[in-house]
């Protein structure tokens, strides 16, 4: 199954985001060896050079490392992963707040609705 890529943004930037999510969510765990550029390019159905560019970007940020003998691995630096997780989560919250405000919700109303929804979920679980 090819990765779900949007058509209006650079492909490499979307690959970076998907790989970041996979690392943060533990799909690839700290220290784990990543598939080769070609394997991942085939999986995502994208150009290998574009995948290479995404890897280079992740490497610059320290999230993945090139081992001389063992291909590429995810960083073992948990702090770095945690920091990224927080950054991604904050982005989601930001998008959520923008959308709620566009619907005309004030901050207290959003808080109220959030608590209500959480309670409903607990009941249903």
């Amino acid at each position: 199954m090819a990765w779900d890529l949007k058509s209006d943004r650079p492909i490499y930037a979307q690959l970076v985001e998907i790989l970041q999510r996979q690392i943060v969510s533990g799909h690839y765990s700290p220290g784990e060896r990543l598939p080769s550029v070609r394997e991942l390019a085939e999986e995502a159905a994208v150009n290998p050079n574009t995948m290479q560019k995404a890897f280079a970007e992740l490497e610059r940020g320290g999230l993945i490392q090139t081992q001389r003998t063992n291909g590429r691995t995810v960083t073992e630096n948990q702090e770095l992963i945690e920091e990224l997780r927080r950054k991604l989560a904050k982005q989601h919250v930001g998008v959520f707040l923008d959308k709620m405000q566009a619907l005309g919700y004030t901050v207290p109303a959003i808080e109220g609705l959030l608590e209500e929804t959480l309670r409903e979920r607990e009941v249903s679980i």
Binding site: L5, S7, A45, V46, N47, N49, T50
Partner: peptide, 9 residues
Amino acid sequence: ISDIENVLD
């Protein structure tokens, strides 16, 4: 084009 553009440099 849309079918192929993700594989193009």
